[in-house]
Nucleic acid binder design. Structure first.
Lengths: 72, 72
DNA sequence: TAAAAAAGAGCTTTATAATGCACTTTGAAG
DNA sequence: CTTCAAAGTGCATTATAAAGCTCTTTTTTA
């Protein structure tokens, strides 16, 4: 999952929950400026920042082996 | 997936592939100091740093809705 | 379309991630 | 034990994420 996809997931999820950037910033403890920067594709958030956002949005960050082993 | 779990996945995967921190640092373009700090639980890597490591290790970062909706 | 709300951007400061270097500690193999 | 490789730490520097404030742009809605 690439950067842009991660951003999209966050934005889509926020839209689904009908939460504004401002509200999400408050609920997550992440600065509004930081959230805006991230969602507009200009950021490189720390794992902590991302997980704060994910927590509030009911999202989970996972790391998994990317082995799409095809059958012969 | 919490911080410690993410660290564990990285370390385990590196062990499985039998790659040293030094080699992983070189292959991923992440500084050795940064990797050491992260693996020893002292870091808060940026998403870019984490994804560089994940790429080399064949791991994928994903964000998914954490809705473990139980049946009644 | 006008007004209001939400999102994005410029500028600045502060905190800290990223990095390299040298040194210490740990662990495994002999 | 002793050696050697790998992992971890202290210290310092540089780059940049986080943050707030203000203003502009875009989107929504009345």
């Amino acid at each position: 999952m690439h950067f842009e996809e991660i951003i999209k997931i966050i934005k889509d999820r926020r839209d689904t929950l009908q939460v504004t950037q401002e509200t999400l910033a408050e609920l997550s403890g992440v600065g509004l400026r930081t959230l805006k920067q991230f969602e507009s594709g200009k950021g490189n958030p720390t794992l902590l920042t991302l997980s704060k956002l994910a927590d509030v949005l009911g999202l989970e960050i996972t790391l998994q082996v990317k082995n799409i082993k095809p059958f012969k």
